[in-house]
Simulated scan of single mutants.
Amino acid sequence: MTPGVTVQAIAATDPHVLDRVDAVLARMTPAEKEALIRCDFGALTHLGIPALTMVDASAGLRGEQNVTAFPVPLAQAATFDEDLARRIGVAIGTEGRAKGYNNLLGPTIDVTRTWHFGRQAESLGEDPLLAGRLGAALTTGMQSRQIIATVKHFAAYTQEAHRFFTDTLVSDRALHEVYQAPFRRVIAAAPATSVMMAYPKINGTFATENPALFDDVKNRLGLQGYTVPDFWAGADQVAAARAGMDLAGLGPGGVRLAPGALTDGAIPATRLHDAARRILITMFANGLVDHPVPAPAQDVSTPEHKSLAHEAALASTVLLVNRSSALPLPAGLKTLAVIGPAGPDALTGVAGSTYVDPGTWTTP
């Protein structure tokens, strides 16, 4: 573990935030704490707790139109530019709030270990150091707009085949020095962010139900915010909450936890309290309580954001071999053949979390 990371994380939350969180918790019943964990925000309006509104946001806002489509994260990583990543984070955070969201599901900082990984375009590449530094820049940029980032996926998520039940066998050293390393840097920079737990089993136990992983992310890495499962992840949501899961999501088969599932001794009262506290810390620290999201706007893309996407696309272009000094193109060039899907076509991301449809396109 990087020396000083845990100390930095513990010292990073404003005592004023903690005082406000504890004041709200003092008014909450166990049933209300459970409602917060289950995302039953309608039962909490009298406490001033806002509903979480989530959207995938690795390269822009998935499922929306009239938004900016940024280059996929793998292309962002190819820029090696932390300031550019921070500005992209600010832009996505700005558009997310304008569309009525207060929780961005991104950035994705899974370490790409094989080209067979179906979500590699959503990751920040194969280098844990690079993924951590760019992930930190994206996260702090997003959260500067009074919005929560959810960094994903913790941890050792490296394949899509059988992702819901595969068992990833990994040594402690590789787990901590490779797969968790990007999260260490992000959490050091933004301890009150949130972290999404991965789909697979890790050494025999689902990541969502793995006490050792929760100990790593909260105690070794210093996360003060909440953990949340990937959608439909794991096998037992009560076991997940007992192990350290803070925010309940859609369980196996899309089933939500029923009211009362986490009370009456199902999980220790201290665990219930800790989960609710972490959710509230993340909300207060990132301004969700003091800055409610506006009514969704129809068009949130701007010329500045489109220019930023263009800048990132240029910066991400990598020349592997400059055969026969083909570049730069000669000044007197009259014609140029563009071969492949690069003329009137536009590809933004792949199916899934990185796909963004802005509605209108500027093609190569």
Rank of each mutant, 00 (worst) to 15 (best):
G4C: 09
T6D: 09
V17A: 12
V24Y: 03
L25R: 01
A26W: 00
R27K: 14
P30G: 04
P30R: 02
E32V: 09
K33M: 15
L36G: 08
R38W: 03
C39T: 13
D40F: 04
T45G: 07
I49W: 07
L52S: 09
A57P: 08
F70H: 02
A77E: 09
E82S: 12
D83M: 12
G89K: 01
I92V: 14
T94M: 12
G96L: 06
R97T: 05
Y101E: 03
T108I: 11
D110K: 00
D110F: 01
R113D: 07
F117R: 05
P128T: 05
L130S: 08
L138W: 04
T139I: 03
T139Q: 02
M142T: 10
S144V: 01
R145M: 15
A155D: 05
A156C: 09
T158S: 12
Q159T: 12
D167P: 09
D167G: 06
T168G: 10
H176L: 14
H176F: 10
E177N: 12
R184D: 12
V186M: 06
I202F: 03
I202R: 02
G204F: 00
A207W: 00
L213T: 01
F214G: 07
K218V: 12
L221M: 05
Y226A: 15
W232E: 15
G234Q: 05
A235N: 13
R242F: 04
G244S: 03
A248Q: 08
A248S: 13
L250I: 12
P252R: 08
L257K: 00
G260S: 06
G260N: 01
A261N: 04
L262C: 02
D264N: 15
A269S: 14
H273E: 15
I279D: 10
I281W: 06
F284R: 05
L288V: 08
P292S: 02
P296S: 05
V300P: 02
V300D: 00
K306L: 15
K306H: 14
A313V: 10
R323T: 15
L329V: 11
K334C: 12
L336Y: 04
P341F: 02
A342C: 14
A342P: 10
S353H: 14
Y355G: 10
V356S: 06
D357F: 14
G359E: 08
T363F: 10
P364A: 12
